[in-house]
Write a protein that binds this DNA or RNA. Structure first.
Length: 435
RNA sequence: GCCCUCAUCGUCUAGUGGCUAGGACAUUGGAUUCUCAUUCCAAAAACCGGGGUUCAAUUCCCCGUGGGGGUACCA
C-alpha cells in the first residue's frame, strides 16, 4: 500500500449527480492505480438540505458503480468520524488554534480569517502552475456558530492526511482560500488536481440535476449496466490514448493517472452513453444476460413465475444481439409470451401494401405442414425454394410471416424466431391472422 | 465588473515544429435479394481569429474572441 490518500466528499442531498460520480471515479481510479487509500467522507453540515436517509443514495450509487471505499461510512477507519456532523470537536480545536495564533478574528459575531496578503501558487497536477491571490479576509465561522465549507473541508483533509485532492474545476478558484487555511494551520497543502466539468449536451452551463441523464439513479432505474456507465464516465476527460474505448476496469486502473486527465470540459452525450451500454449488453454471457433480464420481465409482467425457464432462455438467446439495452427487452420480446400481442399499424400497412399477403401465408402454412420440427437449417433453404417456385421474393414470405406471428416488422432473425415460437404457435397465429 | 481556467470534426477524443491530422458516437449512402434497433463497407465532417518566434506552425509566445467556473455568514 502506498501513502496516497484521496477522498470523495459528497453532500447527501438526495441524489447522486453524474459529475460527482465521475469525481468519485477519478479518485477511486487513482487510489487503485497507486494502491493507495480511497476515503469516503460525508459533508452533512448543511442543515437545510441534508437528510440522513439521503446518504443511502450515494452509498448505493458508489457500490452500484463498483467503487469500494477503504475508509468511511459502514467501513470505519483510523481517521474518523467520517461524517462532518460528528466532527464538531475537531473543528473547535482548530478554530481555537487560529484564534490563538492571531490568524482569526471576530467581527459582527462571525469569525474571519486574516489573509496572508500573498499570492498562492497551486501546482495543479492537471493544469500545471496556477496563481491566484486571495484579496479579502473571509468568514470561516458564521455568526450562528456553524463553520463554513472552506474551513471544515481543509481541516478534514488535513486531519485525514489526504495527499491528493482530486475535485471539480469549479473548486479551482476556492483553492487559494484553502491554501490560506493550510498555511494558517502551518501545514503543507495536499497536491491539487482539478478535473474538467461535465457540461449540458445542448444549452449553456454544466450539467444540472434536472438535465436528462444527470443522475446515477436514472441509469439504475433504466437498467443500464453499471460497467457501461462507469466505462463511459472514464472516457469523459480521460482516454487510454489508443483507438479503443471499451475497456475493462482493470485496464483503466493500470493506465489511469491524474497527469493525463484532460483540461477541457466535456459535453454529456446521451447517445454515446447508450451506445456503450449496448456494447456491454451485447457482450454479456448469455446466462448473465438472462439473469439480468428475468427480473425486468417479471416486474413488467411480460412473464410470471411459471413461465418456462428454457423457453425464456431460447427467446433471449436470439434477441440479445438485437436489443438496445436491458430496458428495451420487455417491449422487444412481448409477443413471445402472449397470444394477445399488439399490431404495429405502420408495420402492418407497409407489409399489406405489397399485396397477396394471405396467399403467401397459406403457401407458407402448406410448406411447414409436413415438417416435424422447425429449425433454421430447414426453414431457410425451404422458404427460398418456395419463393423460387412461386416466382416471388423470399422477403414476401418473411415479411408476411413476421407480421402475422409478431405484430411488428422488427425483431430477431426470422428463422430463429419461427423455431423458438414453435410449429403449433406459428400455425395458430398465422391462421388467426388470415381469419 | 473583477479573478481563475479552457480551446482539434456536431459530440467525446488521439496526435505532431514538417503527417493524406487518426479513432469513436451521431449523421448520410451502400451491402447482407430477411425486417432493423444487428453486422459489414463507404462518405461527409475539425486544428477559433490576429499578430509574432521559426526555413517551417494546428503544435511555442502574446493579444483578441468564444466557452466554463468562481466572485456568499451555499457546498
Amino acid at each position: 500500500m502506498s501513502n496516497v490518500r484521496v477522498r470523495f466528499a459528497p453532500s447527501p442531498t438526495g441524489f447522486f449527480h453524474i459529475g460527482g460520480a465521475r469525481t468519485a471515479l477519478f479518485n477511486w481510479l487513482y487510489a487503485r492505480h497507486t494502491k493507495g487509500t480511497f476515503v469516503l467522507r460525508i459533508e452533512d453540515t448543511d442543515k437545510e438540505r441534508d437528510r440522513p436517509e439521503f446518504l443511502q443514495v450515494i452509498l448505493d450509487g458508489l457500490r452500484w458503480l463498483g467503487m469500494d471505499w477503504d475508509e468511511g461510512p459502514e467501513k470505519g477507519g483510523n481517521f474518523g468520524p467520517y461524517f462532518q456532523s460528528q466532527r464538531g470537536h475537531i473543528y473547535e480545536e482548530y478554530i481555537t488554534k487560529l484564534k490563538e495564533s492571531g490568524r482569526a478574528y471576530e467581527k459582527e459575531g462571525a469569525l474571519w480569517l486574516k489573509i496572508s496578503g500573498e499570492g498562492q501558487v497551486i501546482n495543479d497536477a492537471i493544469r500545471g502552475r496556477v496563481e491566484r491571490k486571495e484579496e479579502e479576509d473571509f468568514v470561516i465561522v458564521r455568526s450562528n456558530g456553524t463553520p463554513v465549507f472552506h474551513l471544515v473541508n481543509v481541516i478534514d483533509d488535513l486531519t485525514m492526511q489526504i495527499t491528493h485532492v482530486i475535485r471539480g474545476e469549479d473548486h479551482l478558484s476556492n483553492t487559494s482560500k484553502h491554501m490560506e487555511l493550510f498555511r494558517a494551520f502551518e501545514a503543507t497543502p495536499p497536491i491539487y488536481a482539478h478535473i474538467p466539468l461535465i457540461l449540458k449536451s445542448d444549452g449553456p452551463g454544466k450539467m444540472s440535476k434536472r438535465d436528462r441523464g444527470a443522475l446515477i439513479e436514472e441509469y439504475q432505474q433504466r437498467h443500464f449496466l453499471p460497467e457501461a456507465v462507469r466505462n463511459f464516465l472514464c472516457l469523459l476527460g480521460w482516454s487510454p490514448k489508443e483507438d479503443r474505448e471499451i475497456l475493462p476496469i482493470e485496464e483503466v486502473i493500470s493506465l489511469f493517472d491524474i497527469a493525463n486527465v484532460n483540461k477541457n470540459n466535456a459535453h454529456f452525450d446521451e447517445k454515446k452513453m447508450a451506445f456503450i451500454n449496448c456494447e456491454y449488453v451485447k457482450h454479456l454471457p448469455l446466462d448473465s444476460f438472462v439473469d439480468k433480464v428475468k427480473p425486468i420481465l417479471l416486474s413488467s409482467k411480460v412473464i410470471d413465475e411459471n413461465t418456462d425457464k428454457d423457453y425464456i432462455k431460447d427467446v433471449l438467446s436470439i434477441c440479445q444481439e438485437k436489443v438496445r439495452g436491458l430496458e428495451d427487452v420487455p417491449h422487444f420480446v412481448g409477443y413471445f409470451f402472449t397470444e394477445n400481442y399488439p399490431f404495429d399499424e405502420k408495420a402492418k400497412e407497409k407489409v399489406m401494401k405489397k399485396g397477396n399477403v394471405n396467399e403467401r401465408l397459406e403457401e407458407f402454412l402448406a410448406f411447414i405442414e409436413p415438417l416435424n420440427a422447425l429449425v433454421e437449417s430447414e426453414l431457410e433453404p425451404g422458404i427460398k425454394k418456395l419463393a423460387e417456385s412461386k416466382n416471388v421474393n423470399t422477403g414476401d414470405y418473411i415479411h408476411a410471416v413476421r407480421l402475422a406471428v409478431s405484430g411488428t416488422n422488427v425483431g430477431p432473425g426470422i428463422y430463429g424466431l419461427i423455431r423458438v415460437l414453435g410449429k403449433t404457435r406459428v400455425q395458430q397465429r398465422i391462421k388467426k391472422f388470415i381469419a
